[in-house]
């Protein structure tokens, strides 16, 4: 296991399976009266969230606490970042307090990778810009596997705002690692540029039309799960689609589309990483249907993040070299 979790590509299939197996044992904890194990006693985990978050931040905090680590939450507001401190100085300041892990969410793609170069502690990516969100992909895989079993050959359709989606980027990698077949659907304006070469390299299918994919027409084949992505209005400066209504008609999981999906496969699963824009990308009837595993995803989130903290922090210490600036002037 690597020291950091920056990208879903850091994990081999065996490592993903180890984490998901460990997560299953963590999940059992949640059903117990005493939801705490002493495994990470004496370790300190800092959750540094430069962007807003409900579930990722609270689940990392709960995960750390249930493993007996000391967890501290920092946000950009209320930290020295608001006084103009640079990311490097902030990261090195926190690292100098001898913490064991830094969980980072940042609006800039690549921020976690960059921080990992500067600090001695483990860095866990909790979402960096439009790049990756590896623990989300792991919890999605956990949720899918707990309902569908082995994901080899299972067909997962990811629909929505692909351009701005770190969830999609991490999911593509983890689902491929686990052998699932993926089709991604988005309007041309929300399809990332260069997706042609990318999909060819990573072996996933793309489509601008949702209905033929959901109906399993031609090569698409039957659908085992549909993952609806959030339309990220905060990352859009407008102009990606004419109206919300038009987006819903073309790409929303409406009641009608859900009924057609269920008619073909009544075990089909509906996922959404949250927060949901009800009525935009997902109809309330779909979000609250028996097919929806949205709350399972949240509950898996804690277990999976416990497993990630365990795999990164529980093992033997590998003393990393002190960063150059910290050793300057040290007596040799």
């Amino acid at each position: 296991m690597t020291k950091h979790l920056i990208s879903s590509a850091d994990l081999s299939r065996a490592e993903v399976e180890d984490i998901l197996e460990t997560a299953a044992s963590m999940h059992d904890l949640q059903r117990r009266e005493v939801k705490k194990v002493p495994t990470l006693r004496g370790r300190t985990v800092i959750n540094f969230f430069f962007e807003d978050s409900t579930r990722t931040r609270s689940s990392f905090e709960i995960a750390g606490k249930w493993m007996s680590a000391d967890t501290i939450n920092l946000s950009a507001k209320g930290s020295s970042t608001s006084k103009g401190e640079s990311l490097r100085d902030t990261a090195m300041t926190v690292d100098a307090m001898a913490v064991d892990a830094l969980v980072i969410r940042h609006h800039a793609s690549g921020a976690c990778h960059q921080v990992a170069q500067w600090v001695r502690c483990s860095v866990i990516n909790a979402g960096d810009g439009t790049h990756e969100h590896p623990t989300q992909a792991l919890l999605d895989a956990y949720t899918l596997r707990s309902r569908l079993g082995d994901l080899d050959g299972k067909h997962v359709v990811i629909v929505g705002d692909l351009t701005h989606s770190r969830v999609f980027r991490s999911n593509i990698i983890t689902l491929k690692t686990l052998g699932a077949r993926v089709t991604v659907v988005a309007p041309p304006t929300l399809m990332p540029s260069g997706i042609g070469a990318w999909s060819a390299a990573d072996g996933f299918a793309t489509s601008w039309d949702l209905d033929p994919v959901l109906d399993g027409e031609g090569e698409h084949g039957s659908v085992d799960a549909v993952m609806m992505l959030r339309v990220q209005r905060e990352r859009m400066s407008g102009g990606y689609f004419p109206t919300a209504r038009e987006y819903t008609v073309g790409y929303g999981l409406t009641r009608d589309r859900l009924e057609r999906l269920v008619a073909r496969n009544d075990d089909v699963l509906v996922l959404h990483p949250g927060p949901m824009n009800r009525g935009l990308e997902i109809a309330p009837e779909a979000a609250d249907s028996p097919q929806s595993v949205v709350l399972d995803q949240v509950s898996a989130g804690v277990a999976v993040r416990m497993a990630v903290l365990y795999h990164l922090l529980a093992g033997e210490d590998t003393p990393a070299p002190m960063p150059a600036s910290a050793t300057e002037g040290a007596v040799r």
Partner: peptide, 16 residues
């Protein structure tokens, strides 16, 4: 998860 030698060994997968 309760072992006292976790920090002396590579990570072991926890089972249910």
């Amino acid at each position: 998860l309760h072992r006292d030698d976790l920090r002396r060994n590579p990570v072991r997968t926890a089972h249910r």
